[in-house]
Design a protein around this nucleic acid. Structure first.
Lengths: 106, 106
DNA sequence: ATATTTGTTCGTTGTTTTACGAACAACTAA
DNA sequence: TTAGTTGTTCGTAAAACAACGAACAAATAT
């Protein structure tokens, strides 16, 4: 059986992995700045093919960081506020460990 | 020419990518809890081949999150405190964006 | 001098990621 | 009914990732 610790590590790693691409960071910052918008708005902000944008949005959605809703023929996207806070808490708990500032090696 | 924004996104994505694997999270938490230790101590904490551990350490080092020093025949590792704080600041600045809690879609 | 300990690097295997164009589905407008 | 708009999905290709055993390098111990 998995320990809670391992589960936490996996949850954090999953969020981190979703944040691990500049385009996805850009999308998240854009969404956070607007509350809500359509696929086309996001695509306009970027310089990559729509198929690629769609793929990045899918990953962010699967990680739980955003959510989308069809508003035909458009698709509306926004940050998933609940999971956004969970992610924030996860990263905080990692960085709060605050390792010794005197590095023991170089 | 790249905008500062893009550079920031890349720096953050680089940190996030390094954090994007449960084993690497585990390594970082372990290191943060001890100030410093040897490769063997890290390997003992995990249940994977030493070649794989070495590979994960290399990635964490390339992301700047840890540093290592040879103390023959052992290798000492620790968190890179300076970059750890930079990473913390990067994630903080992302999550501080604090998107609207009223999700516009589901 | 030889064997042992400690980690890294190499080579391999299979999986995942990133990016794209093209095809498609679903709705709207003419 | 037909054409246009909006995004997703499919198929593909190249690169990166994850994991391993084996070989190796470098120092220490015998």
């Amino acid at each position: 059986m998995k320990s809670t610790q391992q589960i936490d590590n996996e949850a954090l790693a999953k969020f981190a992995k979703a944040l691990g691409h500049p385009t996805r960071i850009e999308i998240l910052k854009f969404l956070a700045s607007l509350d809500c918008c359509y696929f086309g708005d996001i695509h306009n902000e970027l310089t990559i093919a729509k198929a690629t944008v769609s793929q990045h949005l899918k990953e962010l959605k699967e990680a739980g960081l955003i959510q989308g809703e069809i508003e035909a023929p458009k698709v509306k996207y926004c940050i998933n506020a609940e999971n956004w806070e969970k992610a924030q808490a996860s990263f905080n708990s990692l960085f709060e460990l605050n390792p010794n500032k005197e590095n023991c090696c170089k």
